[in-house]
Amino acid sequence: MAEPTKETRKLEKIRILGELERGLDDVDKVLATGKTDIELDFSACTFISVDGLEWLEEFLLRADSLKSSVKFVNVQSPVYKVFKVAHIDSLMRACGSPSQDAQGLVC
């Protein structure tokens, strides 16, 4: 089966609602089709657990192997801080932010 070209790929927008306590099967299924890029909208995500974080990391890994692009959008500050403190590069990349701390002068 030919891989979908960039033009034929669909962009699926999915909202994460409430507390992300564990993996979301519906989202996994969308990814499994291998034909879509995904935009996860965190505007209504109020909490993220360790399992939720681990699922997101793994989800991004799977997306990468399927050559699907995943973007996180509208990440609210408390959840964005969780991503920052978790020090997981793939999460930060999905948010479109630099993954490494800038090294500046020490004063």
């Binding site: 657990s49 360790v50 978790a86």
Partner: peptide, 12 residues
């Protein structure tokens, strides 16, 4: 890693 993820989640 376990501690790091927990620390991140704890911030909430």
């Amino acid at each position: 890693r376990q501690a790091r993820l927990a620390a991140a989640v704890f911030t909430q």
